[in-house]
Design a protein around this nucleic acid. Structure first.
Length: 613
RNA sequence: GCACCUGUAGCUCAACUGGAUAGAGCAAUGGCCUACGAAGCCAUAGGUUGCAGGUUCGAAUCCUGCCAGGUGUACCA
């Protein structure tokens, strides 16, 4: 705290000037309760945390639930404490007189004139009310991380989408974010490619389209590996698989030919995954794959041994974690290193290179134990001041509730899945369009170019939104019907809500720029206007809640609430035909802010909007 | 065996991390296009939150024990 600055309204420096912007509603209430509680308890923090949005409009906008807990701690009647607190609250111009209800709930309601001023500020705020953090943190986000020798498949979907959304969110909040794609570019899958290249290469096909030929080779060898020679030989080593292993070993040992081939193939593999990233609009700051860390591995093991963290056991170098539990291997009996070794080298490199406060691993839940062990080892190794977090997520299931597969039982290629999403979006779009035309509705005529963009935005948006709107802990069932539904909490619905809002400006021939440069003080007389105002002002709060536990579905939940609140407003408050020009401007501001926040929220989820559909 | 995750309306999911009468969307029923895009809106119905205990002013949420499903568990990553 700086005594020369007012603390109550938190002026912010922006573009070199002090900017009096709108504030996170929850923060304002928390500050006021901080003050009120200061005289009552030593540490108000846990009690301040008991301020929540009211579940029911009858209970006001927010409610403070701390009086009951305080009653216990102070040995007084909760309602008396609530009364005391209310009297200590700095009231000024922000709140209506709070009410005390039930066992000691304090119901809080903002003054509408104060809300209107906040909305006016929000209108000219390019950051839509989101304040820059006092102390920005540095995050490294490790996500996607496909094995590059084979095409990306549906198993990479969640990590890629969730990781990208978290990167966008944290970056927008004002943190420093470094995205790093930890490619599997050094493993057994390259042995498969090397073996295939040496034995089944079609030179002409390679010249024509190297990526396609690599795919063909990979798939072909995989088939050979999985075919059993005869029924009795179940445990026998498949000769092709063995040959592939040997190619991998030679690569790791530095065999000149294999290294040369690896260097030749890598750009092709990279090109293959880049097309998927480009389509999904996903970018990485760094792509340090396993091969990048390979030269560092011996020193990792040596250092762990030197510090007495790792030791020899049965010929391997291992780290014992817990009594009765299997140890983690950092070097196998045959001298090869493991993924634990690589991951440790990665932690060291990231810590030394970027000094992050937090490293997020957006990786599927099945690797939970691996990360638990890895993080424990990292702590013993001395990396205690960097928070390592496994942001885990469940599986994508088919209709049979089993991990989704093709009809043949193979993994669904991501590029094909995205193609199908866009095709489905186009098919459904044309269907609805035809229906609407038959009903005599005013359907905008759109050029082929614009339609293509709509299909992409809707199809890809549907896939992303369906994933992100789910609590990441649980599995989810993949269904085109569900994700491309035009009703309910879907990308399509939100994109449509955005379009409808924009439609008002088109129809009314209204420009948004003056609204944003000099927003009017809105009227919040109607309960629908007031509810929408609060919902708009809650945007920063939603982002904060989503970021706290790295849960993008909190953003989609907020969006859904916003869309429903907007619907109520839209249905009951005419905009273009408002009773007065002033009211029209007031409502246009609310519309524009709704559109901007929908667009920004979708953007943080990596989803595009279009102006017309 | 041990560990982690999941179990909420017929189906798919929420519930802001302990708050007031557990909410949405599908599906069902009934209504709303001479006010801005009906891909929309409103209303009705639907629940022993897997089961049983416990903790307290208050539990879907925390603890214990069961039941069911998924996943992992020394040389794949």
């Amino acid at each position: 705290m700086n005594g020369t600055k007012p603390t109550g309204d938190c002026p912010r420096v922006r573009d070199g000037a002090f900017f009096q912007g709108p504030m996170n509603l929850l923060h304002i209430l928390q500050q006021r309760f901080q003050t009120a509680l200061a005289g009552l308890v030593d540490d108000p923090t846990p009690y301040v945390a008991m301020i929540k949005p009211a579940q029911d409009a009858r209970f006001g906008d927010y409610q403070a639930n701390c009086a009951m807990a305080l009653g216990k701690a102070l040995g007084k009647k909760p309602r008396d404490i609530a009364q005391d607190l209310v009297q200590r609250l700095p009231l000024d111009d922000v709140l209506d007189p709070p009410e005390i209800a039930g066992p000691g709930f304090i119901n809080l309601r903002f003054r509408s004139d104060w809300l209107a001023k906040q909305v006016q500020e929000l209108g000219r705020d390019p950051r839509l009310g989101v304040e820059s953090p006092k102390t920005p943190r540095t995050f490294v986000i490790d996500f996607s991380s496909p094995n590059v020798a084979k095409p990306m498949h549906v198993g990479h979907l969640r990590s890629t989408i969730i990781g990208d959304a978290l990167a966008r969110l944290l970056r927008f909040q004002g943190h420093k974010v470094i995205t790093d794609n930890h490619l599997g570019d050094w493993g057994t899958q390259f042995g498969i490619l090397l073996y295939g290249y040496k034995n089944f290469l079609d030179e002409a096909a390679l010249k024509a389209d190297p990526v396609r030929e690599m795919l063909r080779i990979y798939v072909h060898v995989r088939q050979l590996m999985s075919v059993r020679d005869d029924e009795d030989a179940e445990d026998a080593v498949n000769p092709v698989a063995e040959a592939c292993r040997q190619e991998t070993a030679k690569l790791h040992a530095g065999d000149a030919e294999n290294v040369r081939l690896w260097q030749m193939m890598m750009p092709w593999c990279q090109a293959e995954i880049d097309t998927v990233y480009k389509r999904l609009d996903i970018h990485f700051d760094h792509t340090h794959g396993e091969s990048f860390y390979n030269p560092q591995l011996p020193s990792v093991v040596a250092d762990l041994e030197k510090r007495g963290i790792a030791r020899n056991s049965e010929g391997a170098v291992v780290i014992f974690l817990k009594e009765g539990e299997p140890p983690a291997l950092v070097r196998k009996r045959d001298g090869a290193f493991t993924y634990t070794t690589t991951d440790l080298a990665t932690i060291r490199y990231r810590a030394e290179t970027w000094q992050p406060q937090t490293v997020l691993y957006v990786v599927d839940f099945r690797q939970g134990l691996h990360f638990k062990n890895l993080f424990e080892i990292a702590r013993r190794w001395g990396y205690q001041d960097v928070a390592l977090e496994h942001v885990s997520f469940g599986s994508v299931l088919g209709n049979d509730r089993k991990p989704i597969k093709t009809r043949e039982g193979g993994a669904i290629e991501l590029s094909e899945l995205l193609d199908e999403g866009v095709r489905e979006a186009a098919r459904r779009y044309e269907l609805t369009r035809k229906e609407r035309q038959e009903r005599g509705e005013d359907v905008p005529a759109l050029a082929a170019e614009e339609l293509t963009q709509i299909y992409e935005a809707v199809g890809l948006g549907a896939v992303k939104y369906a994933d992100l709107s789910q609590n990441r802990d649980s599995d989810y069932i993949f269904s085109w019907d569900k994700m491309l539904a035009t009703e309910g909490n879907t990308a399509t619905y939100m994109q449509y809500a955005y379009v409808r809002t924009r439609g008002i400006f088109r129809k009314g021939d209204e420009d948004v720029e003056p609204l944003r440069a000099r927003p009017p003080l809105p009227s919040l007389e109607s309960p629908h206007e007031r509810a929408l105002a609060i919902q708009l002002l809650r945007f920063p709060e939603a982002l904060e809640a989503a970021a706290t536990d790295y849960r993008p579905h909190v953003i989609t939940g907020y969006l859904w609430d916003l869309a429903k609140t907007y619907s109520g407003f839209f249905q009951n408050c005419p905009v273009l035909k408002a009773e007065s020009p002033a009211l029209r401007q007031s409502r246009l501001l609310l519309c524009d802010l709704t559109a901007r926040i929908i667009q920004k929220s979708l953007d943080l989820l990596g989803i595009r909007t279009v102006e017309r559909m």
